[in-house]
């Protein structure tokens, strides 16, 4: 009994003198934590969150960098959707790009990853060769090569000529320009491929073996094992690729000759935003465009996340 009684009394007695020490240590801890965090905090507040708020404000103004911003309410947004044909063109071009380039890149990267996941494809050389173009991805150099390959007399014209297909210069024909930009994106399927490959390696072999015992065809195995087991990775790649695709800039800038191509056929959203903000110095209008882009990306991401419940299969974790 006495043994039982003593510990509580010492326990209640002890915190009293320890308390200030603990609080002091915690305060010291806090100070140390904030020392480590200072660079990031300055950047997050001063260069990210702060500018976001300012750009939201600017999107309701007319501002040319030299005179004070003038409040115009929703005028910028109204102008975008009702008066500005080039804006609507940029929306059209970007939607086409996102809706074609993202699925194409996903399908190609998944198919190639599946072949690489077999014994024949396990050679590291293939993976390196397929991955390398993604590193050049958004570079000006890659886009310049593309421009040369798709221009009059370039490789693509010559090859298509060889099989009897007469195509105009892709770079100069408005109905072809954006497709050369799309093909440049598909050429860089290496990054999602590496992610798919990592995902494929996680699928337990026993599942396939069991299916083979039951006599399942390769097609059935793909639909009933590979796709469901890989769905979290597909989801991950889809979100990343969609977010990136909306922001495509360099390839369209370079292939379109810096102006958005013939008849604005490669005028992607961010390129028009760049022209509005940094060539015409319509900072208010450019900010409004940026916020519309942010909201659209957020909505698309949210829709993909929502839909995930229907098609993403989380194995034993669900």
């Amino acid at each position: 009994m006495t043994v039982l009684k003593t510990p509580p009394s010492s326990a209640t007695a002890a915190p009293a003198p320890r308390k200030p020490r603990g609080a002091g240590r915690r305060r010291e801890h806090q100070r140390e934590a904030y020392v480590f965090l200072t660079p990031w905090l300055l950047g997050a507040i001063g260069l990210t969150v702060g500018p976001m708020i300012v750009s939201l404000y600017l999107s309701f103004t007319e501002y040319d960098l030299f005179t004070e911003p003038r409040w115009v309410g929703f005028e910028n947004f109204v102008r975008m959707f009702t008066e500005d044909d080039r804006y609507l063109q940029s929306v059209k071009v970007t939607l086409l790009y996102v809706l074609v380039a993202v699925p194409m890149k996903m399908i190609v990267s998944l198919l190639v990853a599946m072949v690489l996941n077999t014994r024949a494809g396990s050679n590291g050389f293939y993976r390196s060769a397929f991955y390398a173009p993604s590193l050049l991805g958004a570079s000006v150099a890659a886009a310049l090569v593309w421009r040369a390959m798709f221009t009059e007399g370039g490789t693509v014209n010559e090859l298509l000529d060889g099989i009897g297909l007469n195509t105009p210069s892709w770079v100069d024909d408005p109905s072809y320009t954006i497709w050369s930009v799309i093909l440049l994106a598909v050429w860089q399927f290496g990054a999602p491929m590496v992610i798919f490959l990592a995902g494929l390696k996680q699928i337990p072999r026993e599942l396939y073996e069991a299916a083979e015992v039951d006599g399942a065809s390769p097609v059935r195995k793909f639909w009933h094992i590979t796709l469901p087991m890989l769905s979290p990775v597909i989801f991950f790649n889809l979100v990343l690729e969609a977010i990136h695709a909306f922001q495509v800039f360099t390839p369209a800038f370079v292939i379109g000759g810096g102006r958005g191509g013939p008849a604005d056929s490669a005028l992607v959203y961010t390129l028009y935003l760049y022209q509005a903000g940094f060539e015409d110095f319509e900072m208010g209008y450019a900010s409004a465009m940026a916020w519309v882009l942010l909201v659209v990306i957020a909505i698309v991401t949210a829709v993909i996340f929502r839909s995930a419940r229907l098609w993403v299969f989380y194995g034993d974790k669900s």
């Binding site: 702060g50 500018p51 976001m52 600017l58 977010i243 935003l273 942010l294």
Partner: peptide
Amino acid sequence: MLPIHVIIVPQYIL
């Protein structure tokens, strides 16, 4: 995942 475009204008001004 924040697009750089929503901060580039104020950053440029700064």
